[in-house]
Design a protein around this nucleic acid. Structure first.
Length: 241
DNA sequence: GCCCAGGTGGGTA
DNA sequence: TACCCACATGGG
């Protein structure tokens, strides 16, 4: 068995912590504090959004959430009681609507059978236990679980995703494009303080710069606030991955 | 028409 | 373990 190449590059002078701090500072200066998951209807809306946003543009999720709100289904009790067909009809704009409707119902079943329908009761439990329970639910993978934990539960968890993989690969921090979710998350957890507010905003900044500047095809390196930290800066146009 | 979007689960070798 | 595919809508 060949030895696996490490997924994280050797640290720069000063270490990854200060380097990550510099990345975050530049993003924050450029984009400002991100209003991430405003959730007018509270943590349950965040959870619903975490399911609905899977592999789908956020704008479509907003339509689905608006439909659920109009139907009065943005509470655990209402969603739990509603027929799955009604839920599916509401969330249709978010894609995969039959699957997602079934899985939202599964979450409600879990919340009621184990916590009497109370998110406060769920989020009163230790991080590791809640995470394991969420991951055991059909339709909840690591990103959805961590989004729920950080943005709905307020736990100090860094959400990572495909954007994180691409951005930090290009920045030279990751050496492989197939670095695993857990390895990426461990990288941030190891080198940043366990601060929910920081993780919350950092992830939002990563999504923002990835959507606006570090595009999959044709990154706009000239406009990038991270250009001076990036070894690929100047390559521009059609760089991959 | 094509690619992409804040993934996950199940099947196959 | 490592691929491969289904799931589905909407915008650029």
């Amino acid at each position: 068995m060949a030895a696996e190449l490490p997924s994280v590059a050797p640290p720069p002078a000063g270490g990854w912590g200060p380097w990550l701090g510099a990345v975050y500072r530049r993003l924050r200066e450029r984009f400002g504090h991100r209003q991430w998951w405003p959730a007018q209807d509270g943590p349950f809306e965040v959870i619903v959004g975490a399911y609905l946003t899977q592999n789908v543009a956020w704008v479509n999720v907003e339509k689905a959430i608006a439909n659920l709100r109009a139907a009065g289904l943005l509470t655990p009790a209402a969603l739990h009681a509603a027929p799955v067909e009604e839920v599916a009809a509401c969330i249709r704009p978010a894609g995969y609507y039959r699957q997602k409707a079934e899985r939202l119902k599964i979450f409600c079943d879990y919340l009621f059978s184990r916590y009497g329908g109370s998110l406060d009761a769920l989020f009163a439990r230790p991080l590791g236990e809640v995470r394991a329970e969420l991951l055991a639910l059909k339709g909840v993978g690591p990103e959805t679980a961590d989004s729920i934990l950080c943005y709905a539960g307020g736990y100090p968890v860094m959400v990572v995703d495909a954007y994180t993989r691409r951005l930090f690969y290009r920045l030279g921090a990751f050496t492989r494009t197939d670095i695993s979710y857990d390895e990426m998350q461990a990288f941030f957890h190891r080198h940043l303080p366990a601060d929910t507010g920081l993780f919350n905003d950092f992830h939002a900044q990563i999504v923002t710069v990835s959507n606006r500047i570090c595009l999959k095809r044709g990154p706009r390196c000239r406009e990038c606030p991270l250009a001076d930290l990036c070894p690929r800066q100047g390559l521009d146009e059609g760089e991959r991955p």
